[in-house]
Design a protein around this nucleic acid. Sequence first.
DNA 1: AAAAACAGTTTGGTATGACAAAAAAAGGCG
DNA 2: CGCCTTTTTTTGTCATACCAAACTGTTTTT
Lengths: 239, 239
Amino acid sequence: MTDPIRQNVSERAADSLVTILEQQINDGTLAVGQPLPPEREIMEVFAVSRTVVREAVQMLAARGLVESRPRFRPIVRKPGYEAAIETVGSSINRLLAMPGGVRSLFELRIMMEASLVRDAALHATKDHLTGMQRALADNEAMIDDSQRFYETDNAFHRILYEVPDNPALPQIHKAYTHWLSGHWLKMPRDAARNLTNYQAHSRIFESILMRDADAAETALREHLDAAWDQVRQTFGHQP
Amino acid sequence: MTDPIRQNVSERAADSLVTILEQQINDGTLAVGQPLPPEREIMEVFAVSRTVVREAVQMLAARGLVESRPRFRPIVRKPGYEAAIETVGSSINRLLAMPGGVRSLFELRIMMEASLVRDAALHATKDHLTGMQRALADNEAMIDDSQRFYETDNAFHRILYEVPDNPALPQIHKAYTHWLSGHWLKMPRDAARNLTNYQAHSRIFESILMRDADAAETALREHLDAAWDQVRQTFGHQP
DNA sequence: AAAAACAGTTTGGTATGACAAAAAAAGGCG
DNA sequence: CGCCTTTTTTTGTCATACCAAACTGTTTTT
C-alpha cells in the first residue's frame, strides 16, 4: 500500500552535484542567461569525473533549470512558473496521446475557466474590464482572418487568467493553448464559426459586466462545449 | 537484428535511443513492471556505448517512464496520469520554495475545488453521496485523533475529485495533498480545530445534498480560507 | 525442509583517457 | 572596424577499467 521506509540508499554523486548546482543557480552564483562553466571546469572544481558532470547537467536540463541544445553550452534559465510548466511537456504529450487524453485536458480547462469567469464576474477591476473590451473588439475585427482570430481568441481568454493575482495562472493558460493548439490549428475555421465564437465571448463579457456569475459561467460552458463539439466533429472520434 | 541507431545530425544519440525505448515501452516490448535489460545488453543491441545508454535511461527516468533507484535496475512504469504528475515534482518543489509559492498553489486548489463542489452539487450520483456520507462519518469519528483525522479529511475531499469522470482529477488531488502535506503536517492540530473542519465538511455535504451549488461553493471557500489562515498563523509570514 | 550464511557472478556507479566534429576564440587581412 | 581563416576549446561519443552493491545458486545451520 503506502510505501514503507524507503531511505537514503547511497545518493548518486550526480545527485549531489545537481543539488549544489541548483543552489548556485538559485543564489545567483550561476547567473541567469549565462552559460554553465565548461564540463572540465566543473569537473575539477568539484573533483568528480566528467561522467558525473554530464549526468548532473542532463538532470538540470530535464528539470528545466538550464536549457541545453546539442553541442552548445547549457544556459541557465530563470526558475519560475514558466520553466516549471515547460518541463511537464513530455508528460503532457504522452497524456494527450492516451485514449481520451485531449478530452480530459479540455475538461480540466473548462472546469478551471468556469471558476475563472465566476471570479471575474465578482472581482474584475476596471483595468481587466477595459482589457477584455479591447480584446473583444480585436476579436470582432478579425472574424474574417481565422489565424489572427485565433490569436485574439486566446488573448480574450488570457485576461480571465489574469484576474486572480496568481502568477501561475497565466502560465497555465499559455500551457493550455500550447498543448491544445496542435488540435486546434488543424480544424477548419471559417468566418461563420468565428462569428459564433465572437458572440459567445461577447455574451461572457456582458455577463461579467453585469456581475452575474451564474450567467457568465453558463455562457462560458456553452462556449467551450461548442468548441469541443467542433473538435470532435473535426476528428470524428473522441481523441 | 540490431537496429543501428539512425542519427540525424544535430540529434544526440541518446535522444534517438530514448525514442526507440519509449516506443518499446508503449508497444509492450518492454513490459510494465519489469526491469530494463542490463546496460551492457542494451549497449550491444543498439551498438552504442554505455555512456549513451546511461544518458538515455536517465532521460526515461526524468520523464517518468521508468523508476530508477541507485544501484537497481530501472523498472518500467505504466505510463499514465500518475507518472506524469509525479515527474512534475521537482518543478513544483521549486515553485513552493519561491515567495508566495505555497499561497499560489493553495489558491489554485481553492479555485479548482470551488468548481468541483459546484459540479458535485449538480451531478453527484447516489454512490458519490453515500461515499461522502461515509467519509464524513469517519471524519467525525476521528476528531480526537489528528493524524487519522487528516487522512479522513483527504478522503472527503478526494471524493469531490471523483465526481467528474476525469481520470486526471484524482491524480491532481493526490498531488495537491502530497505537495502541501509538508506544511500541513507541521501544523498544530487539536480536537477543536478538527471539529471546526468537520463542521465545515458537514456544511459542504449538506449543501451538495440540497443541490445548492452556491451554498456549496460558499461553504467550501470558507472552509479552505480558514484552513489557509491556519497555515498562515502557524508560519507567521506568507510562505 | 526451511532459513540463514556463504561464495561467485552480474550489474550499476564512477573514473580515466582518447578522438572527431562542432563551436568559440584568436589572429590576420582588407 | 568588419570579414575571413586558423587555432584552441569544448561537447558528444567511445572504450576500458575498477569497485561495491545487488543478484544467484550452493552450502551450512537450525
